[in-house]
């Protein structure tokens, strides 16, 4: 399973103080595919995403056992450069979170943090990122107006562009369409399918339908454990586990 995987988790468990949020997660996530982590609320999906780029470090009392390897490198290695890790693993949150600054400054935010970029190259990188997130045409004439004035769907694509600007390897998306209308959702999904040519994508979908539309590989989370993991067509059409089937067919959720 770990052969050719971008991310490998081995017996990874995660606790808030002593409350377990994830138990014995064993996963191999393959590069340039969309992996969806789906399941009911409070099943540990968000914790799983945030432990990959160690945003869980911000939570007091968080601790873990087991390991997560990114290209063979332990994410929790104490000697690891956290800034570097987070630039390799970009994250988009469930609600659009543009920072209160211009569209341009939002996309340039991550690039400016390490100051290693000239003004001209910054402009090019911002344009490239906005094009990749399929937002450029809509905002190219108003790059210097506030990002807060964009629509919800545009804001979420801006958040994707903001991450793409850093040229990461992995994208984590935590219910990126939960606050969006169906048309914006469709445009985000199209964007994701385009992006998987270059990136490894881990998506927490906001519905089973969305998971089945975009996923290559899927893992069903329940109460902090992985019930079943496999190719998406198999999980969504003939799951092996009864609980997965019940959830996928809408018997609970």
């Amino acid at each position: 399973m770990s052969q050719g995987s971008k991310i490998v988790t081995s017996d990874f468990s995660f606790y808030y103080d002593s409350t377990p949020a994830l138990r014995n997660i064993n996963l191999g996530i393959r590069p340039k595919e969309i992996f969806t982590a789906f399941g009911p609320a409070r099943s540990g999906k968000t914790t799983f995403l945030k432990s990959l780029n160690r945003l869980t470090d911000l939570i007091p009392g968080a601790n873990h056992t087991g390991s997560i390897l990114l290209d063979g490198m332990n994410v929790y290695d104490p000697g690891l450069d956290l800034t570097h890790l987070r630039r390799r693993i970009g994250m988009v949150f469930d609600l659009p979170t543009p920072l209160p600054m211009s569209i341009f400054d939002n996309v340039a935010y991550g690039l400016r943090l390490n100051k290693m970029i000239s003004k001209r190259r910054l402009g090019e990188a911002v344009e490239k990122a906005l094009r990749s997130a399929v937002l450029w045409e809509e905002v190219k004439d108003r790059l210097h107006t506030s990002a807060l004035r964009l629509s919800g769907g545009q804001q979420q694509r801006l958040c994707i562009a903001r991450i793409l600007a850093l040229e990461p390897e992995v994208l984590l998306l935590d219910e990126p369409c939960s606050g969006l209308d169906p048309i914006s959702t469709a445009s985000i999904e199209e964007t994701l399918i385009q992006l998987k040519e270059d990136y490894t994508i881990i998506l927490v979908p906001h519905s089973v339908q969305q998971a089945s539309r975009v996923a290559d590989w899927a893992g069903f989370f329940l109460n902090g454990e992985i019930v079943e993991v496999g190719p998406a067509y198999q999980i969504f059409t003939k799951p092996a586990d009864q609980r997965t089937e019940d959830y996928v067919t809408g018997r609970f959720g």
Binding site: N53, L55, L58, T83, H84, R86, R87, G90, M91, F93, T97, L99, Y109, G110, L113, N114, C159, R162, I163, L166
Partner: peptide, 8 residues
């Protein structure tokens, strides 16, 4: 969270 997740 956004700032940290972008490597800040």
């Amino acid at each position: 969270e956004v700032s940290y997740s972008l490597g800040g």
